[in-house]
């Protein structure tokens, strides 16, 4: 393996297939955050995200002895292959949830649409870094967005995460979701007003509420950078009656 330069994902997975378990540990280190983040966005539950991350990595481990399932160079990037496995793991998780007995109903069963939406809403845990001021506003907004995402249907959420988080094209998302591009965009476009309304209910507007330039600047860096920039982000928090406060 080359010294002094980043070893590629391809080299690592092939290294693991050649019985270097340390190569797998490096892949684990590189991707577990992204896998966990995706599963947390899909499920809203840290313990589910923890288990599904491990399950995905276990599936990767098992491709070593599988002729069909192995990663093959030249047939797409490693991270695409990994996310295909991860999203299959997510779909298996949803199938398992349907097997839950009636005495432990899943949030989607036996409830009104409103109750279903409420039950999917992630609890808004106060962020330890939150306090008065701009940082709190950034975290407040992101927590609200997270909670609102959990109120979408599982399919809408999956479409959002594929397109906006995993940078899949609509075609790729459609192929893997067993549907067509139009259906993927429909999922997203039907979800947008729901997200907007939900954010509004929580006191955040979207159209005027986010300073796009500041947010874009934050995007290019990291969450910590976003927090640093938060002083420049002019979230407008509206009161519950619809009026706006600077």
């Amino acid at each position: 393996m080359p010294n002094g330069q980043q070893v590629s994902d391809d080299q690592l997975i092939l290294g693991y297939y050649a019985c270097h378990d340390n190569a797998f540990e490096e892949l684990n280190r590189r991707y577990r955050g992204q896998l966990y983040g995706s599963f947390l966005g899909l499920s809203g539950d840290p313990s589910v995200a923890d288990d599904l991350t491990q399950e995905t990595l276990l599936k990767v481990v098992n491709t070593k002895n599988s002729r069909q399932g192995r990663y093959q160079r030249g047939r797409g990037a490693f991270n695409r292959w990994l996310y295909r496995i991860a999203l299959n793991v997510w779909r298996d998780h949803l199938r398992r949830q349907k097997r839950q007995p009636p005495q432990q109903p899943m949030p989607d069963e036996g409830a009104t649409e409103e109750e279903r939406r409420e039950s999917r809403a992630a609890p808004e845990v106060p962020d330890p870094r939150a306090g008065p001021g701009a940082i709190a506003r950034v975290h407040g907004f992101l927590n609200a967005l997270k909670a609102c995402l959990m109120r979408l249907t599982a399919l809408q959420r999956e479409a959002f995460i594929r397109i906006y988080w995993l940078d899949q094209t609509a075609r790729e998302a459609a192929d893997e979701m067993g549907t067509n591009e139009n259906a993927v965009w429909q999922l997203i476009h039907r979800a947008l007003p729901e997200l907007r309304d939900c954010l509004k209910q929580r006191g955040y507007t979207t159209r005027q509420g986010i300073d796009e330039d500041a947010l874009r600047g934050a995007m290019a860096n990291s969450v910590d950078e976003a927090i640093r920039l938060a002083g420049n982000v002019t979230f407008v928090r509206t009161n519950q009656m619809g009026g706006e406060q600077p």
Binding site: G37, L145, L192, A218, M219
Partner: peptide, 27 residues
Amino acid sequence: SNEEFTLAQAMKLLYEQEVASAPERHA
């Protein structure tokens, strides 16, 4: 639309936050 674009940006930021919150190992 502007609104979609803004939401897309916010989604990215949220993703970064979720990734950053990932524990180094299973609980």
